[in-house]
Design a protein around this nucleic acid. Structure first.
Length: 507
RNA sequence: GGUCCCUUCGUCUAGUGGUUAGGACGCAAGGUUUUCAUCCUUGAAACAGGAGUUCGAUUCUCCUAGGGACUGCCA
């Protein structure tokens, strides 16, 4: 058996912003493709004309680009297997739907949605479940129960119809899932799914999916666990179309669950917990759905955290670049059980990636924030500042609150610190200290320290007491990196000015 | 209800027929730091339950319980 080229697809439907679970599915597809030197295809599954959302397709493209998942074939990229948008492939599906009817694998049905709803409601009232299946199909309005003439008549009269798959009886369907192993279903529990609808001349997901995967020569289908129950239908479809020989291999990924409580992660969880569930911001009628990008996450951090939700390389390494993930990824090491999303750990991943960035790169990102605040600073200076504090922030957006004092004198002083540090002999001493600071001829951290230490000793004061007050004057609070370094960086004049200002303001 | 899937610290997970069941996030304590943070050290914390197979099961099998997905002319 010759091993065929790996070709996988990510096939979202453009009904809104891409969910984090969808992003992970895309990522695993991408990693698998690249690991095996294969193609990563983006197919837009817009077969539900009623759920189409403007802008969703562009959102998907932008998300993939931001995260660094390069698409080999797709609507924008083109390719030899196009079109890559299902609404542009109508004729193709119609042909195969007809073929299934001709070969007896499917039939026309005229039951209206309202009739079916009524039957479902009725069944529910009797605590039963209605299914359009091998048991009920003969009582329904379809080409199996109706005479040929009547079928023809209804169709010629323009009555809407659908094509349903005629699920065979009592057949065991077995699949060898790449993450779950052997799974078996019996067709007796399956229903006759709609494959095609005349109303909008479009197939449903099931038919479109099989036809496209076959025609696009997809080798592996990697998708969420919610698709597992439809595997037997899909296998039967491959069989009915005589494509079983080249049927792709399936892999069903575990779900991403809520941080607390039950069920799979949803948009509401993000709102409640204050963390993003989407890669990019998405405008809603009643507000905005937060995105990772706009929340300050690095794309590589998001990729990293998503990769480890349901997969691990078996070592104790937790931080990976996209290249490393491609190198190490294997579908066999994907977990079977659902993974709860942990917002705290997500932050940690971002912090880890932030610390690992070099100062110049971070400085560049920080410059944007600075200019928004009307601050101008030399790139070299900003890089130095960033280097001093990057270990104490999770996001670029937190940089300002840690470094504002490098760019402007404190506008206010932390009252708690004032109360604790600015008392007794301190104010008087600080005034004297400015005189000493004036005298420092070489404004370097070490020299400043020597000067201050000498003065403290001469006065017999506590080192800590003075230093904390000095920090309060320069920073406005009790935080920040090494104080002497701060003094050196803001300069001699500014340092003295701030001490004087503090003495004046904190009487 | 039916079908299918899943089950190791609170969370993400490693792991093996014989281990002190390992790591990470978070949490707690201590230390370093003139401060905050970092950092370091330490600690608490798990094999869902019951049978069976076996000299020995967290590991293999079965059952139970719990959780989840699906059950649309949605994907």
């Amino acid at each position: 058996m010759t091993t065929r080229k790996v070709r996988v697809r990510f096939a979202p439907s453009p009904t809104g912003p891409l969910h984090i679970g969808g992003v992970r599915t895309a990522l695993f597809n991408y990693l698998f493709a690249k690991k095996h030197g294969g193609d990563f295809i983006l197919r837009i599954e817009d077969t539900d004309s009623t759920r189409f959302v403007e802008g969703a397709e562009e959102y998907i493209n932008e998300s993939m680009e931001w995260l660094g998942m390069t698409i080999d074939e797709g609507v924008k990229q083109g390719g030899e297997y196009g079109p890559y948008k299902q609404s542009e492939r109508r004729e193709i599906y119609k042909k195969y739907a007809d073929q299934l009817v001709e070969t007896g694998w499917a039939y026309y049905a005229f039951d209206t949605p309202e009739e079916l709803d009524a039957l479902r409601a009725q069944a529910e009232a009797e605590k039963k479940t209605f299914a359009y299946d091998m048991h009920s199909r003969s009582n329904m309005k379809n080409s199996l129960s109706l005479s040929e003439d009547e079928v023809k008549q209804r169709m010629e009269a323009g009555e809407p119809w659908v094509i349903r798959f005629k699920m065979p009886e009592d057949t065991d369907v077995q699949t060898n899932d790449m993450v779950r192993g052997s799974v078996t279903f019996n067709t007796n529990t399956l229903d006759d799914k709609v494959l095609y609808k005349s109303a909008d001349k479009l197939p449903t997901y099931h038919l479109a999916n099989i036809v496209d995967d076959h025609l696009m020569d997809i080798s592996h289908v990697i998708r969420g666990e919610e698709w597992l129950p439809s595997v037997p239908l899909h296998i039967m479809l491959y069989r009915a179309l005589k494509w079983e020989e080249t049927m792709p291999q399936f892999a069903h990924l575990p779900l991403i669950l809520k941080p607390t409580g039950k069920g799979k992660l949803s948009k509401r969880d993000g709102d409640k917990g204050g963390f993003p569930v989407f890669p990019l911001n998405w405008q809603l009628e009643d507000g905005i759905a937060m995105g990772y990008r706009e929340s300050g996450y690095f794309p590589e951090a998001m990729v990293n955290l998503l990769a480890l939700l349901g997969w691990n390389p078996g070592t104790e390494q937790e931080l990976f670049s996209m290249d490393e993930l491609v190198e190490l990824f294997s579908i066999e090491r994907v977990n079977k059980s659902g993974a709860r999303f942990d917002p705290d750990k997500a932050k940690w991943f971002n912090q880890q990636h932030l610390v690992r960035k070099d100062d110049a790169e971070l400085a560049e990102l920080f410059q944007c924030e600075l200019s928004e605040k009307g601050m101008k600073a030399e790139p070299g200076f900003v890089a130095q500042v960033v280097g001093l504090v990057k270990e104490r922030v999770n996001f670029v957006s937190e940089l300002w609150e840690q470094t504002a004092f490098f760019f402007e004198a404190p506008v206010e002083y932390d009252p708690k610190v004032v109360k604790k540090r600015w008392k007794g002999d301190v104010p008087a001493f600080m005034t004297e200290l400015t005189v000493e600071l004036e005298k420092v001829s070489s404004w370097k951290a070490d020299d400043i320290k020597t000067a201050i230490s000498g003065q403290i000793e001469a006065k017999g004061l506590g080192f800590g007491l003075v230093m904390n007050a000095f920090r309060l004057a320069l920073v406005g609070g009790g935080f920040g990196p090494d104080l002497m370094t701060i003094a050196e960086m803001i300069g001699q004049d500014e340092t003295i000015k701030r001490v004087n200002a503090a003495v004046e303001n904190l009487q």
